[in-house]
Amino acid sequence: MYGRKASELVKELASSEPGQLSSFNNDLFAQVLEECNGHLHHLQPLMRKIQEHENKLKDTGRSEDEMGNSEDERRKSEAAKTVIQAAMKSDQFGALVHHLSLVRNKRCLMAYVYNRAEVIRSLGWMCDRVLPAEIEERLSSTEEEYFKNHAATLQSYMGGLDLDLTVDMVPPKDPYIKVRVVDDMGGVLLGDQTANVARHAIMFLRRIDAEQYITQGQMEELTG
């Protein structure tokens, strides 16, 4: 059935957890693209045929004018016209089916790529410039490219504005927060001095200092 593969692609997208990426389905994606080209192969001869039929119709119309008004001839050309028209109709509908399938496949492919791009952008807000390896391997090569380009675009905007927009993602309640260090971090710049931070240490830090480490997953905030 036409369009089934494309709908599988979209279903896969819809059933995945919102905001999360699964691996780019290269296989299915390529199959749908192939199906699109298949449609075109069917479509082109049909379009040609329709054109031919149209020409023929015109021809018969013209010859009808030229020929006299003999009853017999007129009936014959009338019959020929109906045959051509019927053939043309079936070709037109055939072409329409292929055209619509193609358009639908295109929409599905675009939706797949577009929605993934949306998730990729939202990742761009969370981890600037570098994607964790386990996410990166799920992207297609153009998606990686897109992520890099988009990150650069965002960076240049913030550079022009001289304001870092990737911090302060949640409204601040208190200027100081309690954090636990998850990773071995070594020397860390806190405010204007460097502190040596050991793993599992629980510290009371200025929120603006700690925030970047929290988003990178090196610290976690302790609440309550």
């Binding site: 693209l33 699109c36 295109k106 790529v113 791009a117 998606e143 490219e145």
Partner: peptide, 13 residues
């Protein structure tokens, strides 16, 4: 646009 073109559109008729 580049991204969409490279991944999908350039491969379509």
């Amino acid at each position: 646009k580049n991204h969409l073109e490279q991944s999908v559109l350039s491969k379509l008729p």
